[in-house]
């Protein structure tokens, strides 16, 4: 009698048991729901709507206009060129700094980190404004140069591409340094010591061991800097003085001045496509060269 009861109870018990594992799965999925819902409504939907807008009336008219107009093409390639220069500059400036942060004594590393983190946390507008004070014709740098008699007339540092590059590199440098620094912290120092012990000169150790080992960080930092550069708005707007055109500025113009939402949408989509492409390309590069 007892046995029958136990046997009868088992299938029922089993059903409940299966749902206990399922309940946890459901619970964890449910935790994501509010965030996903928010993103679905105010992120995914607007982007899909923007895509629809760019293909207004189911035509490619806006894209044809974007391509044939000539202006967009010029600005697009100009943006890509600036983004590349900024990325390379960040790598050249940032790689040794990351190495310094990863290897210096505690005190110096802290000082260095502070130098990188403090600007990172400072308002972008504050920094841009400071560069205007520094780089202007009556700015600090030109005054010092003229005052020292090194140049006769102030150098054109602001309201041109140079000013934009300086401002962008300043903003984006930490984005390159952090990922490289994180990778360098994990690099096994004994490897380099071993290579040197085997008689490899410093340059060879750097090229053959350190660089390949830290490449994932370089790829990550480079991707981030390049992608962020493509969408830059504030720095070119203020430091370019209207003479340096980048895509984000062009899009703002289409909306703010021309009220041409369709064109703006098409430009936005092209920019997104460029970013996705750059992301995929860097990812492949990073994977192929990973040690």
């Amino acid at each position: 009698m007892q046995l029958t009861a136990a046997t009868a109870a088992r299938p029922a018990g089993r059903r409940v048991r299966l749902s206990r594992a399922g309940r946890y799965r459901l619970l964890y999925a449910a935790l994501a729901a509010p965030g996903v819902l928010l993103l679905a409504v105010v992120f995914v939907y607007p982007l899909l709507d923007l895509m629809r807008l760019s293909f207004e009336n189911g035509s490619l008219a806006h894209y044809e206009e974007v391509v044939s107009g000539g202006l967009f093409g010029t600005v697009f390639w100009n943006t890509v060129r600036i983004a590349l220069i900024v990325t390379i500059a960040c790598a050249v400036l940032g790689y040794p700094v990351a190495h310094f942060l990863a290897t210096a004594s505690r005190g110096w590393a802290l000082f260095g980190l502070l130098c990188v983190v403090l600007p990172f946390w400072t308002s972008l507008l504050v920094r841009t404004y400071a560069w205007m004070i520094l780089l202007g014709n009556n700015g600090i740098i030109n005054k010092l140069l003229v005052g020292a008699g090194l140049v006769e007339r102030p150098l054109p540092l602001l309201h041109n591409e140079f000013g934009v590059l300086v401002g962008m590199v300043h903003v984006l440098l930490p984005y390159f340094v952090f990922p490289v620094y994180a990778v360098m912290l994990r690099v096994d120092r004994t490897l380099m010591a071993a290579a040197e012990g085997l008689g490899a000169p410093l340059w060879q150790v750097l090229r053959r061991i350190y660089l390949p080992l830290t490449l994932p960080g370089i790829a990550a930092g480079g991707t981030l800097v390049f992608i962020l550069s493509l969408g830059f708005f504030i720095t070119p707007a203020l430091l370019g003085g209207g003479k340096v055109m980048m895509i984000a500025l062009l899009i703002e113009q289409q909306v703010g001045q021309m009220l041409n939402w369709g064109m703006a949408a098409a430009m936005c989509m092209t920019l997104v496509a460029a970013i996705l492409l750059a992301y995929a390309a860097f990812k492949r590069l990073g994977r192929r060269n990973a040690p």
Binding site: L47, G231, F233, A248, I251, Y279
Partner: peptide, 15 residues
Amino acid sequence: IALPSIVYSVAAYQL
């Protein structure tokens, strides 16, 4: 993270 603010702004404006 990867989407430029300008693109998001234009997109969100409609909604």
